[in-house]
C-alpha cells in the first residue's frame, strides 16, 4: 500500500489552442492562429502517431488523447507496466457540453436524425475510453466534474486510487474543451521511479500540482 509521499510526478504536459508543452517547454506552437480543431490535427500530424480513429474524436477527446500521448511516449516504465497496473483519473468543469450542443443540433430541426457518432461523445468519460484503448489501460478509470482545478481534490482521489488498486502508474489531470478553447494539463504519476531520473521528477503534493498546473515549474 503506497503512501502519497511515495508517489512522484515523472512528466507533465499542457495543451491549449495556442501550444503543446512538455514539462513547461513548448514543443508545438500554433503559429498560424489555426482554429482549435485544425491545431489539434497539426499537433497529431507532427506527433508521428498513426491512429486514424483520432480524426473521429471530438475536441475534448482529441485534446486528452494527444496530451496523453506526449505524456507517456518517452516513458520506458509506461511501456512495460502491466495493463491492470495503469489507470486514468480526469477532472473537468463542463463535462462534454460542447459536443452536447453539437449533438443537439443534429436533431433539433424537426424530423432530422440524431447523429450516433456524436451521441457517443456526449459522455465525458469517453475520452478515458479512447486513452485506455490506445494504451491498453485496464485499471481504475474515473471522471469527475469539478468547478475548477482543485489540487486537494485531485490529491485525495490519487491517494485512494494508488492505495486501493496497487497501481504503478496513473494518467491524471484536468481536461476541458469548450467554445473552441481547450485546457489540458496531464500528469504522469508513478510509484516506481528510477533514481537516475530523480532530478527531473517532482513529488506528488499540493504545491507541485498547483505550480505545474500554472506552468511554473
Amino acid at each position: 500500500m503506497p503512501k502519497l509521499s511515495e508517489i512522484y510526478i515523472s512528466n507533465w504536459v499542457h495543451f491549449n489552442e495556442k501550444e503543446m508543452s512538455l514539462k513547461g517547454v513548448p514543443i508545438h506552437q500554433n503559429q498560424t492562429d489555426s482554429e482549435l480543431k485544425d491545431f489539434l490535427v497539426e499537433v497529431y500530424k507532427s506527433s508521428g502517431l498513426s491512429y486514424p480513429k483520432f480524426y473521429k474524436m471530438d475536441n475534448l477527446s482529441k485534446s486528452a488523447f494527444i496530451s496523453a500521448h506526449y505524456l507517456t511516449h518517452e516513458s520506458e516504465v509506461w511501456k512495460v507496466s502491466g495493463e491492470s497496473k495503469k489507470g486514468v483519473l480526469i477532472f473537468n468543469s463542463v463535462s462534454s457540453l460542447e459536443t452536447d450542443y453539437n449533438f443537439h443540433k443534429t436533431y433539433s430541426p424537426k424530423d432530422s436524425i440524431p447523429s450516433p457518432s456524436l451521441f457517443v461523445y456526449t459522455l465525458p468519460n469517453i475520452l478515458i475510453g479512447e486513452i485506455c484503448i490506445y494504451h491498453k489501460i485496464k485499471g481504475e478509470n474515473l471522471f469527475f466534474i469539478s468547478e475548477s482545478f482543485d489540487a486537494d481534490e485531485i490529491l485525495a482521489q490519487c491517494e485512494q486510487i494508488f492505495e486501493f488498486n496497487a497501481l504503478d502508474q496513473l494518467i491524471c489531470g484536468w481536461v476541458d474543451s469548450f467554445e473552441s478553447k481547450s485546457n489540458a494539463t496531464l500528469f504522469l504519476m508513478e510509484r516506481k521511479v528510477k533514481q537516475n531520473e530523480s532530478a527531473a521528477i517532482k513529488k506528488l503534493n499540493k504545491s507541485n500540482l498547483e505550480l505545474l498546473y500554472l506552468n511554473k515549474n
Binding site: 473521429k56 432530422s112 436524425i113 447523429s115 450516433p116 457518432s117 457517443v120
Partner: peptide, 13 residues
C-alpha cells in the same frame, strides 16, 4: 460499428 450507424443515418437522410 458506429460508422455503420452513421452510414445508416446518411442513407436515410
Amino acid at each position: 460499428s458506429i460508422d455503420a450507424l452513421e452510414i445508416i443515418v446518411m442513407l436515410d437522410k
